[in-house]
Amino acid sequence: MRIIALVLKRLTWFVPTLVGLLLIVFTVSHIIPANPAVVLAGEGATQAQIDAIKEKFGLDQPLPVQFWRYLKSVVSGDFGTSLYTQRPIAEDLLTRVPATLELTLITIVIAALLGIPLGVIAAARRNSFIDHALRFFTVSGLAIASFWLAILFQLLFAMKLGWTPLQGRADSWGPDPVTGFFVIDAIIQGDWDIFSDVVSHLVLPVMTLAFPAMATIVRFTRAGVLDAINSNYVLYEQAMGLPQRVIVWKYVLRNALIGTVTQIGLIFGILLAGAVVVESVFDWPGLGLYAVNSILRSDYNGIMGFTLITGTIFILVNLLVDILHGTIDPRGAG
């Protein structure tokens, strides 16, 4: 019951939060002295030509009117037109969302597959050499600037060794879009050349993004496992004479995982933030690069569209995590 109440409460705030977010971003993006109509009109355009473009995109209206119009069109499913590409924002974003999700989801899976066992090992052998090494690793993961790490990887693996491509999502066109997830599309079409090309393009950005994510997971898993080891029921199991390995992997891990799972929201946040920078370095055609480009070109509708999508994803993920948290660990709900 409490869960349902929580979800309802959160959902009532969902729309106001999004509108508030849009309002902030709208205000911020529209006080730039940039007049995108000037760029669109081309060099040497007269004021009349510029005014015509302004009118067409509604840029001549007062800001509150522009914002109201924007909200109304969003409700009807229209995110507006990009001032640059002249295409609907939704269409541009649609190709970008799978690119970013593919990157972040693969990263989360890899980070979890490696991070959880390493966290358990660190806890089980605490104060051993492995534990100290892992501690150095996790501290580094959260201290290194992702754009610098990305450049180091490029320098080493792409430029010096030539093992991986430098940037981009595929060497040429990639697979024909079905889901928009290149890995999946390549598998569906059974084209293994494209598949290996797509995978090789994923290696460096995933490595860059996975480093801090993995560091976070290792930390939380280690702390969770230690918490569980010190709790009473483990003492009981030990007293029952179960081997240490069984206790750690079977009983302790299950409890420790709860703590880690509820951190997925946090990790997802780290990844989305990381994607903004990492996509810029790797020229990855995802949401992050789209956001940076839109901001730099004052493409208002692009900035708003990105905010809307990211905000929605982010709020939903956090809601999901809270529900999980509430279900697994009722103490923390509310």
Binding site: P33, V39, L296, R297
Partner: peptide, 27 residues
């Protein structure tokens, strides 16, 4: 500034910079 802002300010006597480096290409 990014080009979008530069090009706007270039058209306005008050907003134009004192000095601005750029290219003039061939149209």
């Amino acid at each position: 500034d990014p080009w979008s802002v530069v090009s706007t300010r270039m058209r306005d006597k008050e907003q134009m910079y004192d000095i601005l480096f750029l290219w003039k290409s061939t149209y």
